[in-house]
Design a protein around this nucleic acid. Structure first.
Lengths: 166, 166
DNA sequence: CTTTGTGCAAAGCGTTTGCACTATT
DNA sequence: AATAGTGCAAACGCTTTGCACAAAG
């Protein structure tokens, strides 16, 4: 409390890699090159991705080869560790960074599949009000607003999405 | 325009079966016993269901036997016809009545998988505001609030859900 | 009679798993 | 040395599809 670095203990800003290592150690799991390479790659910038895309990207990475199985297993661990959030979109799993990101929801363009983030304070209130009303203990929510983004709207939206499944 | 039944063309309240038949005919599709049996069964009361449950139920129905393939194909048609809405939950498709139901969203209990419906007027406003802000043309939205329902909460929530995927 | 729908079984797609081998602890 | 992780390929669960036969228009 009276440390020179008191503020640091509130504003811990460790890297995703560090957080993941901590998590692994706290669970008695091992720190492997594959796991490290994956956290680092995933947090090098791109935000929304699926396992398949990741497999492709990682395939042409310099380091150790990483198998499909390990990628799926590591993604689960990153979700457990609170570094990633998973959601289901068109029947496949999509991941996004959780660590260091403010709570948000998504606009989903059904033409180009793009995800646009937004934040709404009021949504939090709705969530609480509804939960209270139904005696429900909330752990999370997911709001996806589906439609057509500006770019695709301009393209006169020629084709219709075959299946309107959100 | 000057018909005796001008009002009827605004407030048509036909049954799901009638609507489906209209839809099929308008598309040049055929009205088959399987399709009719399915609409009727689906709109006989139960609200949220998946293809598998439907297959089981239909299996012990008196009428014509209906194959898995036909059930999947007909569900797609019912969605196209605007009678059902499909959503993805834990990686599987779940359907619910759209025809004759007011717009609503869901609380999803991750223990017992129950879906509870609720309606929020404010959510519509959020939706519009966000869309306007991003130049997005909205066609639909889906809000799922995940947590533990009253019943499961009482049972001291012993076990944790293995995968927190919404 | 033409054309679409059905049932079957096989294929597809994303994800998971069993197992022998490798590597971390 | 003991135990957990990896890669591989096979298995899985849900959904879709190709094809020959049946039936609606």
């Amino acid at each position: 409390m009276s440390s020179d670095f008191a503020l640091e203990s509130i504003e811990v800003s460790s890297s995703p890699r560090e957080r993941f290592v901590e998590y692994l150690q706290s669970k008695g799991k091992r720190v492997t090159p594959q796991r490290l390479q994956l956290v680092e790659h995933i947090f090098e910038g791109h935000d929304h991705f699926d396992a398949d895309g990741l497999i492709d990207e990682v395939a042409r990475l310099k380091g150790k080869r990483i198998s499909r199985a390990t990628i799926y297993r590591t993604l689960d661990e990153l979700v457990d560790a609170g570094l990633l959030i998973a959601m289901s979109l068109r029947g496949r799993r999509v991941y996004e960074h959780d660590y260091g990101y403010p709570q948000h929801d998504h606009l989903h363009c059904k033409h180009c599949d793009k995800l646009i983030e937004f934040h709404s304070e009021e949504l939090q209130n709705i969530r609480e009000a509804v939960a209270r009303e139904h005696g429900f203990r909330v752990t999370s929510h997911r709001l996806i607003i589906t439609g057509v983004c500006t770019d695709c709207g301009r393209k006169q939206n020629r084709q219709q999405s075959p299946l309107d499944l959100v």
